[in-house]
């Protein structure tokens, strides 16, 4: 169990593991927006949290197809399916999701303050965005595991994962941005969307690996 976690984290951090690509993509989204919106600092500060959330969401979606693809190519996915009486498949998927989040989701949270400064956000807004991303991005990974598991048997499933997953991550985006604005703007609710965001993460932490494990088991035969 720990071995699988460490192995996946190591693989993810290695060159070509996709962690760096996700961060660069996140950076690109945040850097491109001021060009589209115009360099009005007040406007940027206002919509900054939303931009960062969109960027983080897209960056997470980008890396999802790698979740099972590499394991399938080198055959370790089949081993996991065969050894499911030792470690249940949904549990293995859960560990893989955690490792995937550590290598792709967590770096996004870490670079968020830097991008927040570029977008002229104040300290409170940066903190709120980083906090909601920390709580919300695991949900994206867990939901994405279902799509990645379904698409693993497809010859060209890469883009399909994002399309199939998109409707399910919309609530995460809504509550994430809502909670961030709730922390910054006076009078906007903070506690309720924050709790719902946490609930989404916990809910999909159970449902996602379970459904993904089932899909992987069936993809094998």
């Amino acid at each position: 169990m720990t071995a699988l976690l460490i192995r996946d984290v190591k693989l993810g951090l290695r060159a070509g593991g996709g962690a760096l690509i996700g961060i660069l993509f996140y950076l690109a989204v945040a850097a491109v927006t001021p060009f589209a919106m115009g360099p009005d600092l007040n406007l940027l500060a206002k919509i900054g949290p939303a931009i960062l959330w969109i960027g983080a969401l897209l960056a997470s979606l980008l890396g999802l197809e790698r979740l099972f693809q590499i394991d399938r190519e080198d055959g370790s996915l089949d081993l996991m399916v065969l050894n499911r009486h030792i470690m249940p498949l949904s549990f293995a998927v859960f560990i893989k999701c955690v490792a995937h989040w550590i290598t792709t989701g967590l770096p996004l949270v870490i670079v968020t303050p830097l991008l927040g400064l570029l977008l002229n956000m104040d300290g409170k807004a940066i903190g709120a965005t980083a906090l909601t991303l920390l709580i919300g991005t695991p949900a994206v990974t867990f939901i994405g595991a279902v799509g990645a598991a379904i698409a693993v048997s497809l010859p060209r499933g890469g883009l399909l994962v994002s399309v199939v997953i998109l409707p399910f991550v919309i609530p995460v985006l809504i509550f994430g941005v809502m909670a961030t604005f709730g922390a910054v703007v006076d009078g906007a609710p903070f506690k309720a969307p924050m709790l719902l965001l946490a609930a989404l993460t916990l809910f999909f932490a159970v449902l996602g690996p379970f459904a993904a494990g089932y899909a992987l088991k069936n993809a094998g035969d």
Partner: peptide, 22 residues
């Protein structure tokens, strides 16, 4: 999304279970 997934696989028997899970 479901329709896209159904049409992504040529064998209907293979797409049945992934689609059902989704």
């Amino acid at each position: 999304g479901i329709m896209a997934l159904q049409r992504a696989m040529e064998e209907p028997a293979r797409s049945a279970r992934p689609v059902a899970i989704l």
